[in-house]
Design a protein around this nucleic acid. Structure first.
Lengths: 204, 204
DNA sequence: GTCTATAGCTGGATAGAC
DNA sequence: GTCTATCCAGCTATAGAC
């Protein structure tokens, strides 16, 4: 055996986090958060069941790391799509569509953000990432509403509609549609536009 | 020991289903669907772990029975509140508020309807109850839209918004509000009204 | 219809070797 | 940093007594 093939034990030096989180995501995507186990994720990553505990204190710590990533990746996505929109109203409509798209592209990350039952007090980074995401959306909303309170209401309304459509999409409620994804995106964006127009009219 | 106290074994003759389902609901309400186990539900119901299997084939069968009840109870609720509304538009707005109220009143039943991961092909009664619920909402929507397709779109849009607000409420996103429940109900109903007006304008 | 008892399995987490 | 081995806990479902 040539020495370019080192010993079989001691794999994944340094990148076990990455490999393990990828395996965990695929596991959550197929079996849901409830179906996720450290043991199964370890098997899929090709390491022993003990290895992950050198990188994560426990099961929840691994899930929290993934959920935090879910928030930061969404933030980047929404920042990008909003940068390409002409005005604050179109930015929020683009966000709504992108929210649905994210749920379709990354069902595991999407589920982790609201169904993992994680204790935000225990994982401050998770809470911070969530707040940073919300703050990203507040900028265009404030441009439309002036005062803070109505901006918050508008963001919540648009996000609620987008979330509902995303859940309907991932739960199979829309399977009757010819293209469930594009239907959900279109409806979420349309709802956002309608809500924005109504809020502007109410404030005028 | 007087004979009005019969032997301790053999309790719950005939009503174990009811007692067990109540215990299961409280368990789901506190620990979520993933935290539900037959063993814990049995303990809370005061019976052995074997007793439930005389009434339910397995764990999923019990959850499916609860989820089916969740659909039928929601159907009754919405039918009742819609009966008190003046026109189809107000009926759907009342539904949106009632949807949020149901999530607040029965968090376990609410969670079961979309997070239990039940196989609808295995539990036909569950699928039927869900369709009956949707049909209940289609009546007012058809009165507003004439054609079937737009009625379906409208119901989905209103339900999506209501669902989003309900999830935000139950997940603690609205804890900053003075009264999260009334806020969510008001916003869900307002979104419904706005969506209805927009659909009517688009069809005119 | 419920019990006791149990088989069989799976998972979380740790100890100690390398 | 990863492994092997292990402990302990908990759950699902069944068998057979009453």
């Amino acid at each position: 055996m040539s020495d370019d093939v080192k010993r079989r034990s001691g794999r994944h030096h340094g990148d076990l986090r990455r490999v393990l989180e990828q395996a965990a995501l695929e596991l959550v995507a197929t079996k849901g958060v409830g179906g996720f186990t450290m043991a199964e994720a370890s098997r899929r990553a090709g390491v022993s069941v003990a290895a992950p505990y050198k990188h994560y204190a426990d099961r929840d710590a691994l899930l929290a790391a993934l959920a935090t990533r879910a928030y930061t990746e969404q933030r980047e996505q929404y920042r990008a799509v909003m940068a390409g929109a002409a005005d604050p109203g179109e930015q929020l409509a683009a966000f709504a569509a992108a929210y649905v798209q994210f749920a379709a592209d990354h069902p595991a990350l999407f589920e982790l953000t609201f169904a993992a039952g994680l204790d935000k007090a225990r994982f401050p980074a998770l809470a911070e990432a969530g707040q940073a995401l919300f703050a990203e959306l507040s900028a265009p909303a404030r441009a439309l509403c002036d005062d803070e309170y109505h901006a918050r209401r508008l963001v919540l309304a648009i996000a609620a509609c987008a979330h509902g459509h995303a859940v309907f999409l991932t739960e199979g409620v829309l399977t009757d549609e010819v293209n469930p994804l594009s239907f959900a995106k279109r409806e979420a964006a349309a709802a956002a536009s309608v809500l924005i127009a109504a809020y502007r009219a109410a404030l005028a």
